[in-house]
Design a protein around this nucleic acid. Structure first.
Lengths: 224, 224
DNA sequence: ATGGATCCACCTATGGATCCCT
DNA sequence: AGGGATCCATAGGTGGATCCAT
């Protein structure tokens, strides 16, 4: 049974708190699913399970997961101290766009305007089925966070719009980085180089460094 | 030929600037010494060479290297960006002392009151003989640096004076740490445990983390 | 092709160990 | 034993690669 979409933030947050402490096995049973042995071939499975458990609507579309209330869901894998183990994917980098886009109109800004963070135990030693959800956090970037995100985005997008995508590495960006987002390194797509000539390049995505997610979680939860 | 001790800071600094850019081979020739093939079995050789070149006096005694003018010499190995590759030894940790010593009277404070930093190229790819000295820096800790050093020292010394030396790891201390300082791990020395009972323990030394030396060098030299 | 993400080989940082000289 | 320090194995971080569902 899949719940209906929540109609208010309060309703969503209440449901999310209701999931805190439950294991993936419990959640999977409720939703009539089978827990994979490992995440090797099901990397996105917990995220999609939690989406369904909370009544998310925008399956695989560039829309907030909870369209009615404009909230994006992010599952964040945490270690035993509650610190993120991985970076967080935000959205794809639009290739071939030369339009001047302002930060406020960017997909990164829109996606991050309001996020429900669901921590999930991700210690390799804990079997997948036994991993528990943590307490959720409904978050918007504060002015400092917005400033650094914007600065990173503008620096990266300048390179992107100049066609210098292949000169961007994941080392760029203080908290927001660009990394490959593809099935593999041979999954090339058409774009244009700095002179406008056709070029094949790897699809890329924007990611939040785990230092950034660690800091925003720490704003609300005391970490040891 | 070994120069006489400098009698003023200005004289010392002028000599040190005069060494900037010279190679260890040049310096060794001047002082009638042979450059070792590697530092493996001569770890302190460059430091002692530079001591002599500058006319240091306090060989192996707990005194400033330049006693007349109260200046300590520290050779700091740097990478191609001018950043320290290693931590910096300050002095030994006095074992068995239970006396209440104030920061101002501590050996760490005294040693660091006035330091001549001599950067030395330390890229493994560069043969020892060809490594060059950098521009010197005559330094005293500013109020911030003093504050953090003092905080670290007091925290560490509290553990030391409680006889908890064996509970201290190099992870303690923001910029000042305690690490082994011995011929090897079997070179134990007598001290007393937290109850005053006799105990053998490794000799330890105070070291400055390279983050700290990097920051103080950056206060004066622009780093890329 | 977008959205859900994790995998893992490599690299770097460093804590504990060690070496020579006086 | 104090002063001159570096060595090096290993833990940790992360950049590029990859996988499934829709």
């Amino acid at each position: 049974m899949t719940p209906s979409p929540p109609t208010t933030e309060a309703e969503l947050l209440a449901r999310a708190h209701g999931l805190a402490g439950t294991t993936l096995a419990q959640l999977a049973t409720t939703l009539n699913q089978t827990v994979p042995q490992t995440l090797h071939h099901a990397k996105g499975w917990p995220g999609q399970l939690i989406e369904r458990a909370l009544g998310a609507t925008a399956a695989s579309r560039p829309e907030p997961d909870f369209q009615l209330i404009g909230v994006e869901l992010k599952t964040v894998p945490v270690n035993r101290l509650g610190r993120p183990r991985e970076s967080t994917y935000v959205c794809t980098v639009a290739l071939g766009e030369r339009d001047e886009v302002h930060w406020e109109d960017s997909l990164v800004c829109k996606k991050l305007r309001r996020v429900l963070w669901m921590p999930l135990e991700a210690e390799p030693a804990i079997p997948l089925a036994q991993r528990r959800l943590g307490a959720p956090l409904l978050w918007s970037p504060d002015s400092e966070e917005t400033a650094v995100l914007r600065r990173d985005w503008e620096e990266l997008m300048e390179l992107v719009s100049l066609g210098r995508l292949d000169q961007i590495s994941a080392r760029h960006g203080e908290v927001l980085q660009i990394r490959p987002k593809a099935a593999n390194a041979r999954a090339l797509r058409k774009t244009t180089d700095e002179n406008g000539a056709p070029l094949l390049t790897l699809p890329r995505g924007f990611y939040l460094r785990s230092l950034f997610t660690a800091a925003l979680l720490a704003r609300h939860f005391v970490l040891s």
